[in-house]
Write a protein that binds this DNA or RNA. Structure first.
Length: 275
DNA sequence: CCGGGCCTGCGG
DNA sequence: CCGCAGGCCCGG
């Protein structure tokens, strides 16, 4: 579910709520998450028990929780993952898989019905060496036109696939790829290495604009996404093409089209977006 | 590159 | 009942 803007919104909401709190208990459900991998309960406990939370960071779609001993908890939300800071007295939602009890009467809860999420602990300063993080490409919010052009030049893939690949640019997902390609006027099937210089520049601007706008709107809540306080985003009311099959293109009125490749929907305007 | 799989839930 | 879902991995 969550792409970069949702994880960033979550990061900000959690930072205000749990930074400074001390972890006085760690509980895990015992159910495995992504790829049947068990939650590393011992490592999580060693990394966070009796430690203070000192910062919350984001890398692409990953949420990183820093502790005062330097250990880092690394969380990926998959499709339906949530991280909620809630009063310990409130009932834990169904599908709660990890709970950090805090010294201020609250709990930090990782909840994930589909269990496509992932969580681990890393030793101080070693989180960037995790295989999952090491393969990530450029941070899109600081992407330069030159860097984007270099990435595009080295592949012959379709633009949709290029932008979905976290090894190129890390943080876009199904929603924001459709949105960025629309804003840039680029067809999702266009070949990456055949964009004009003007199209590359438009794409960079479109990526930044789409992500910044979504963050300003506190993320897109289609169904599951909420921030650390359980609040929904409102960027779903600002989408141009995603989820808008058959509805008129906001620019030219042509009906938006939906195509499916590799099992994922892509939305675009057949008139505005050229190969 | 594609299809399938991992899971659960929801809406038509 | 079926199709679909914001992510990612794997095998062919």
């Amino acid at each position: 579910m969550p792409e970069l803007p949702e994880v960033e919104t979550l990061r900000r909401s959690l930072a205000r709520r749990v930074v400074g709190a001390r972890v006085i208990g760690v509980w895990t459900s015992g159910l495995p998450l992504r790829l049947q991998r068990p939650v590393p309960a011992r490592a999580l406990r060693r990394a966070s028990l009796d430690r203070r939370i000192v910062a919350i960071r984001r890398v692409a779609k990953y949420l990183l929780v820093d502790t005062d001993a330097g250990d880092v908890i690394v969380i990926h939300l998959g499709m339906t993952g949530r991280v909620l800071a809630a009063a310990a007295a409130t009932p834990r939602p169904p599908h709660t898989h990890v709970v950090w009890t805090l010294d201020d009467g609250r709990e930090l809860r990782f909840v994930d019905p589909r269990r496509f999420g992932w969580i681990t602990a890393a030793r101080p300063g070693k989180e960037a060496e995790l295989p999952e993080l090491r393969v990530l490409g450029a941070e899109p919010l600081s992407l330069t036109v030159e860097r984007l052009a270099a990435l595009l030049a080295r592949t012959r893939r379709a633009m949709k696939a290029f932008l979905m690949d976290q090894g190129n640019i890390a943080g876009l997902g199904n929603i924001y790829v459709s949105e960025a390609l629309f804003l840039a006027g680029i067809h999702p099937a266009a070949r990456a290495d055949r964009l004009s210089a003007g199209a590359v520049a438009r794409l960079r601007d479109a990526i930044v604009q789409v992500l910044r706008g979504a963050i300003a709107n506190r993320g897109t809540t289609l169904r599951d996404y909420v921030d650390g306080a359980g609040r929904r985003g409102r960027n779903q009311f600002r989408l141009h093409v995603y989820g808008r099959e058959e509805l008129p293109c906001p620019r030219c009125g042509t009906p938006i089209r939906r195509v499916v490749d590799s099992g994922r929907s892509t939305f675009f305007c057949p008139a505005c977006q050229k190969r």
